[in-house]
Structures are given as structure tokens and as C-alpha cells.
Amino acid sequence: MSALLEVNRIETCYGSSQVLFGISLEVRPHEVVTLVGRNGMGKTTTVKSIMGLLTPRAGSVRFAGSDLNGQPPHRAAQAGLGLVPEGRHVFPNLTVHENLVATAGNRHKAAQSWNLERVYDMFPRLKERERNLGANLSGGEQQMLAIGRALMTNPLLLILDEATEGLAPLIRAEIWACLERLKTAGLALIVIDKNIGPLMRLADRHYVVEKGQVVWSGSSDALRSEPGVVSEYVGV
């Protein structure tokens, strides 16, 4: 099966400071892939490079057969990439309803498109808070809203950057259940998270990132069989 996303040896800098040193990865349709590693190793920079928020100085990013090199973020979104960013970044002065419909669309004519009804079925709490402003939601509710907003764009691939960070255990469990439902529905995912146990249950493959490079990649079974990888590159 051909790859949906192909990232080939990208190098990305912040000014004169280089962060990525030849990162390569791929995601196939309907596949769940993770980026794991300690803080500051280049995971979020990789996401920003994929989404066009940063422009790699070398290498290439291809998605659904299109070259995204040097393209602005809205082109990545139009191509079918959805992002749930670290820190949520919901629109604080818009209601839950307004946040969800602000960027909604079905550019790729999905037969079972994401709409308000489906998002509210996934997160009933958002229906209850429909008229509340984004700024007045709890952290967990904001995370649900950020996921719902991204789903309303009907992406072909959804990227989630630290979607469970700082959340209460019950809310984290609800987010993991959401991701399981998305996987069952066949949506391709890239997940960045520090919780290795749930990641290994959810994901098909993993990329371990250290100092801007992929130092290990493989399946969940392979990662379980090499506990030293987790202790060396992921553990605190």
C-alpha cells in the first residue's frame, strides 16, 4: 500500500539553530503512527514542518501525492491534513458551536463526513457546553473541542500533539477512547504523547526521535520486545 504521507530527510532550523537532521517517516492510509521521545528532541518541529508552519531547508514532504514543500499551512489543511496542536489553541472568544463550524468543510467528499452531530456524539460534554465561550471551558473540554474542530475539517490524516498532556485521568481515558474510535473508523493518525502504554495499544508503528533524528522505528510488538529503547530514549 502506498504511503499517504511521505517525509524524506527533512532538515529544519529556527534561525541559525538546526533542530531536525534528516527526519524521515511515512504514514499509510488507515494507519496509526507515533512520534515518541523526550521533550525538545524535535517531535513538534517535525509536525510544524509537515504542516507548513516551518519550512525545511532540505528534504521533502509529500501528502496524498502532492508536494507540500514550501506551501503555507492552509494548503496542507486543504490537502487533507488536520492538526490538534500542543496547547489546544481554541478560539477563546467564540462559542463551542462557533469553534466547530468556523473551519468546517468536506473538501474530499467523505461519505460519512464529520459534522456537529458526530462530534457531539463523540464528546457529549461539548453539546452541553455548546453556547459557552472557548475561554470558559475546562482544560479537558478545550482538548475535546480542539479535536472536534480538527475533525470538522474532515482530514485524511489527523495529527495530535500531546493531546492528553495535563489532563485528569478520567479525561485522558476519554481521549484515548476517542482515538480508538477514530482508528476503528479508519482515520490515519500521527500521535505524539508521553504515555507509552496506551500508545503501544493504539498504534501500528512508532518512530523514536532523539536530537532531531529517528533512532528507532518499528511495530508495537517490536517496541515491547526492546524495553531498552523506551528506557534510553523515552523514559525520564
Rank of each mutant, 00 (worst) to 15 (best):
residue 64 A to S: 13
residue 37 G to E: 08
residue 175 I to C: 01
residue 120 Y to W: 07
residue 28 R to D: 00
residue 92 P to T: 00
residue 108 H to E: 10
residue 234 V to S: 02
residue 112 Q to T: 15
residue 33 V to G: 08
residue 33 V to L: 08
residue 133 L to Y: 15
residue 9 R to V: 00
residue 185 A to N: 07
residue 61 V to A: 10
residue 119 V to T: 11
residue 108 H to F: 11
residue 68 L to C: 09
residue 44 T to Q: 06
residue 173 A to D: 15
residue 71 Q to I: 00
residue 42 G to N: 05
residue 228 G to K: 13
residue 164 T to N: 05
residue 119 V to C: 11
residue 128 E to V: 00
residue 185 A to Y: 07
residue 169 P to W: 11
residue 187 L to G: 04
residue 223 L to E: 03
residue 200 M to C: 02
residue 154 N to W: 12
residue 184 T to N: 12
residue 230 V to G: 00
residue 23 I to P: 01
residue 206 H to K: 08
residue 17 S to R: 14
residue 85 P to Q: 04
residue 6 E to N: 12
residue 146 A to N: 05
residue 139 G to K: 03
residue 162 E to R: 07
residue 132 N to E: 12
residue 98 E to V: 06
residue 235 G to P: 09
residue 224 R to G: 00
residue 169 P to S: 13
residue 66 S to Y: 10
residue 95 T to M: 07
residue 121 D to T: 14
residue 163 A to F: 04
residue 113 S to A: 15
residue 117 E to K: 12
residue 73 P to G: 10
residue 230 V to C: 05
residue 96 V to R: 07
residue 97 H to L: 15
residue 120 Y to P: 01
residue 35 L to G: 00
residue 210 E to N: 14
residue 7 V to F: 09
residue 84 V to A: 08
residue 39 N to R: 09
residue 175 I to K: 01
residue 184 T to L: 09
residue 175 I to P: 04
residue 116 L to Q: 04
residue 94 L to N: 08
residue 146 A to M: 03
residue 27 V to S: 05
residue 17 S to Q: 09
residue 137 L to E: 11
residue 2 S to W: 09
residue 71 Q to S: 08
residue 197 G to A: 13
residue 79 A to H: 11
residue 52 G to M: 09
residue 72 P to H: 11
residue 214 V to L: 06
residue 196 I to W: 00
residue 23 I to R: 01
residue 52 G to T: 11
residue 47 V to N: 07
residue 187 L to C: 01
residue 74 H to G: 03
residue 6 E to Q: 12
residue 34 T to H: 05
residue 22 G to E: 12
residue 29 P to K: 13
residue 86 E to C: 08
residue 123 F to H: 02
residue 50 I to E: 08
residue 208 V to E: 03
residue 155 P to N: 05
residue 73 P to S: 10
residue 222 A to F: 03
residue 72 P to V: 13
residue 23 I to Q: 00
residue 165 E to D: 11
residue 148 G to L: 06
residue 71 Q to L: 07
residue 122 M to H: 02
residue 67 D to R: 08
residue 115 N to E: 14
residue 130 E to T: 14
residue 46 T to F: 01
residue 44 T to S: 15
residue 213 Q to I: 02
residue 217 S to Q: 15
residue 11 E to A: 13
residue 64 A to Y: 12
residue 81 L to M: 11
residue 203 A to W: 10
residue 13 C to K: 14
residue 161 D to L: 10
residue 142 Q to F: 04
residue 199 L to M: 13
residue 116 L to A: 08
residue 69 N to T: 14
residue 106 N to L: 01
residue 95 T to R: 05
residue 147 I to K: 06
residue 190 I to R: 06
residue 60 S to N: 05
residue 34 T to Q: 05
residue 161 D to Y: 06
residue 221 D to H: 13
residue 136 N to K: 11
residue 236 V to L: 14
residue 153 T to I: 08
residue 206 H to M: 09
residue 234 V to F: 08
residue 76 A to Q: 08
residue 15 G to T: 02
residue 207 Y to G: 04
residue 191 V to S: 09
residue 68 L to S: 09
residue 12 T to K: 03
residue 76 A to P: 03
residue 155 P to K: 09
residue 87 G to L: 10
residue 42 G to S: 12
residue 217 S to K: 15
residue 197 G to W: 06
residue 222 A to Y: 02
